[in-house]
Design a protein around this nucleic acid. Structure first.
Lengths: 264, 264
DNA sequence: CTGGTGCGAGAGCACTGCTCTCGTTTGAGA
DNA sequence: TCTCAAACGAGAGCAGTGCTCTCGCACCAG
């Protein structure tokens, strides 16, 4: 790729990323409304009209930042999920959720950009939906492994409307066919609970109650894990037969933990 | 109150509310970024500088809209909670949550204004915190009545950090001294889950999965009620005729989820 | 009746996103 | 190696924004 790149193309690529960097810096300082095209041009020592060679409009620059933010958040969640010992499901769940919160706390304005109110007329480029799915997919990955290991306590479904039944069936077909609908529904609940909690913490809704939300967050994540059916605690020293069963069936393979949330 | 009001004061009051109405209209159409001071001045047939006699800055006008939005949402939740038969705890819980969602769907931009990313440098006037607490207080009210009636299944606390224990103790002291910390924590979780769910639906995070979120919402609300410890079902409602008199005019298919075909 | 005060209109400033034009630079094809 | 179109940055300019200041007019208490 780089071989056939002309100097102009290389300059264009580097300047494009420099523009995004400057915009990200302004975003981190002043929020989305404070990110001005003229401001980033000023920071780069160029004139504002020159920026339009790289981004046709301000919203396109913001969209690029959104895509990057989704990507960074997905990376954070997936690496946190991949780092933990694969059989320690409870810890994988917890660390994945923690990684999302840590990323949000470290990049509050970028988080607000993607999970706050949609800024323009809110178009969702098809590129973002795949990136946005990475966090819930990481969470589902833990549940799939728990189900495969036989340690997932399958909750009862309860009464389900036809629309919801169809939606969960379609979702299962594309995400995790072996997961029962009841687990999928609770995963969706845990997913929205996670981001609701983070948004509340970041946007100041917890000030009167659990303002330093660290311990509340961990507690809630743990309770939601139990709510879905993850085993209470990682067995300290699993019995040899259980261990053998765990490593014997091995549905996802062990070597590819680089991508722990493969979508089958 | 009108007695001691001079004509000038009356004119000022009515014009102030007219400005807010016009601003709310612009907000509903174009979102927070589209609400321009000059635009509302144009709509009212006045010049922009005249608006500064009523709101010293654009952010102050937005803040007024925020306070009003909190007020309207609190009203919606409290009336929904008050309409239901007081002993029907499950239905009170559900209808309160539904009222929040209905209000959010009816006023998406106002919802985004108060629960999306904070718009300006995010100051939270002391007036808003009391208003913002009304929804969770309505939910807690149901739990208090359940505890008083002896029908609240108190969940186990689990391990709790000292910070969290102190926070929940302080919260209980000011809100509901008789509620155990475990219930309070789960109420906080249900609260953030509710708004996380609504935000996801409004901001388009559910598009790939449960996009028409009606049935998923009801299902999740019900599961969270059980999660907190509310009794499974209202103990066989007191008398059908009373129920019919109370809920004769339910707008949306409310009576018994009759349309939801029960599929296992 | 009079003088201070609240009010709306208008001009103007600094800023924004965006468009258009004009020389210059670049690099691929002749 | 030369040529010419495409890409590029700079500048001017337009319409819009929030906000300030000044100026007359209308109100209302003294």
């Amino acid at each position: 790729m780089n071989t056939s790149q002309t100097a102009r193309e290389r300059a264009r690529a580097v300047l494009t990323s420099e523009i995004k960097d400057a915009a990200r810096r302004q975003l981190a300082e002043s929020g989305a409304t404070g990110m001005s095209l003229r401001g980033v041009a000023r920071e780069l020592g160029m004139v504002s009209s020159a920026l339009y060679r790289y981004f046709p409009t301000r919203d396109d620059l913001l969209t690029a930042l959104i895509v990057d933010a989704y990507h960074a958040l997905g990376d954070a969640a997936e690496t946190a999920n991949a780092i933990v010992e694969r059989t320690d499901l409870r810890r994988r769940w917890r660390d994945t959720c923690r990684a999302v919160r840590q990323w949000a706390l470290a990049n509050p304005h970028e988080y607000a950009l993607i999970y706050g109110s949609p800024v323009p007329g809110y178009q969702a480029p098809q590129d973002t939906v795949a990136q946005a799915a990475r966090v819930p997919l990481a969470m589902v990955g833990v549940l799939r492994d728990a189900l495969a290991a036989g340690t997932l306590a399958e909750p009862d479904t309860g009464i389900m409307g036809v629309v919801l039944a169809r939606q969960t069936a379609a979702l299962a077909a594309t995400i995790a066919p072996e997961l029962p609908a009841s687990v999928l529904i609770r995963a969706l609940m845990a997913w929205s609970q996670l981001f609701g909690m983070i948004s509340f913490e970041l946007f100041g809704q917890f000030v009167g109650s659990v303002d330093p939300a660290e311990q509340f967050f961990d507690h809630a994540v743990d309770l939601m894990a139990t709510f879905i059916g993850l085993p209470k605690q990682a067995p300290q020293a699993p019995a040899p037969d259980v261990l053998g069963a765990l490593f014997g069936d091995e549905p996802d393979g062990e070597a590819d933990d680089g991508d722990a949330t493969r979508t089958a």
